[in-house]
Design a protein around this nucleic acid. Structure first.
Lengths: 244, 244
DNA sequence: ATTGTGTGAGACAAATTGCGACAATTGAAT
DNA sequence: ATTCAATTGTCGCAATTTGTCTCACACAAT
């Protein structure tokens, strides 16, 4: 479980002739901690592919000029870069899937950017050529920036606090699900190395320890809050960010 | 019905190994205004669950690989996320219901998407954990400002009073329906986490406790008023407001 | 007034959690 | 291998939160 991935941030190329989709998608993925480029047509896409190191292509197949499908076929034949296809119509999608163009996944417009991101991650994770790690992402919450690679959190005033590895994992899971109550069993599952029989309340201890580091007043938690009878929840906006 | 349209559109995860069901169901639910993701097997579902904020899982239990049932059990044990089970055969369904896997509802294929949607909505509405999670807006009433994120109310004179988790939920529901009589059964449903058997008047106690915190004279309630034989109602103008 | 039902307030027990203490374990340096 | 320090799991106990119960009282209808 402790795969230490490359610190390289994945670079996504978005190919779509609609400028609004290009920019909004770029913006969203950037905010989520990815690098992005965009191209308005297949020719531009080829250009970018030859110049930059691209880890994933998100490709709208309904484009003027060279068909998106032929670009997709070309990539499948000549590169290792995974492709996610976009199309406006579900009906077309079925036809296209039948064509076996070598795409790794398909999304129908209008899509939820979050879902697209999840699929992008899934595709990249599956793909040996791209080592994408959600674990190495830095995320901002409250007045802190979590740097999971260094096991540190950096306060807005500049001071740095070191986390232990368990605290680091715990914070990572909490940041994955802000505003949601996470049960002890779930946290135990993902955070602790438990030997079959685990003391159910080992997690309480870690929560308390993490509180001492991130809360202004650990006896009055504002960020890592207890839901009585439920579990714990992180009450803070979370935003992916570049390493500081 | 939900006058403060939740800022969070429910996000449904569909787990089914049949691609046609996945995509058609996704499409239908999307058209009906929900966010959707899909997974082809249990492993993919776990991945999505750890990465995205999922409010409901629709799960086909007849899947290759890890049994859908074990995923369902794991979710019941480790998450608060409600589950609707799908199966192709009505006969199997009875057996499965007997297994007590912790699902919230069951639908037999082939199903009417509209019915599935209705059940999905019912399950989510009924589920306090998912319905409430990310609602963190502050609201002003009488001389108080409710800050659900911090579980506090702040008086106009500046003093802050802490609420317990249950009081916080109760006040949240009351503020959702000002000047309206709320029956005990409704409050029990949304406020208490009731384990099978519930003492009908547990809510009275919570109302009393909340009164001690918000009423000037708790024995003469002006804000949280009893409707004799009916329930309780909040008699105050409610106004959404910025965090103080 | 009397009766029956619903409600408020306090007491109480059960369940849950915070926190300090400590032992077991790990990891690094010697 | 040994030592030492840091980390982490386990436990005990006090404090908090919650659900249930009891009893006195309020309300509506005889």
């Amino acid at each position: 479980m402790n795969r230490h991935h490359s610190p390289v941030i994945p670079h996504v190329l978005i190919v779509d002739d609609a400028p609004d989709i290009r920019s909004s998608l770029c913006q969203y993925l950037k905010k989520q901690g990815l690098h992005t480029s965009s191209a308005a047509d297949a020719a531009e896409a080829r250009q970018t592919l030859s110049e930059a190191h691209i880890d994933l292509v998100i490709l709208d197949i309904m484009m003027p000029g060279e068909d998106g499908l032929s670009l997709c076929r070309w990539m499948a034949a000549n590169t290792e870069i995974p492709v996610i296809l976009l199309t406006a119509m579900a009906a077309d999608m079925e036809r296209i899937i039948g064509l076996e163009v070598g795409a790794d996944d398909y999304v129908v417009k209008p899509f939820n950017p979050r879902e697209l991101l999840a699929r992008a991650r899934a595709v990249m994770r599956r793909h040996p050529a791209t080592a994408f790690t959600a674990e190495s992402r830095c995320r901002r919450f409250d007045k802190w920036i979590h740097n999971p690679k260094d096991q540190t959190i950096i306060h807005h005033n500049g001071s740095t606090v070191k986390l232990t590895s368990t605290e680091n994992r715990l914070l990572g899971v909490l940041l994955d699900h802000p505003y949601r109550v996470l049960k002890r069993s779930m946290l135990l599952d993902r955070v602790m190395r438990r030997e079959e029989k685990a003391y159910d309340r080992a997690i309480d201890n870690q929560v308390g320890r993490l509180r001492k580091k991130i809360e202004q007043d650990p006896s009055n938690p504002k960020i890592l809050v207890t839901e009585w009878g439920g579990g714990y929840k992180l009450m803070a906006e979370v935003e992916s960010t570049e390493a500081p």
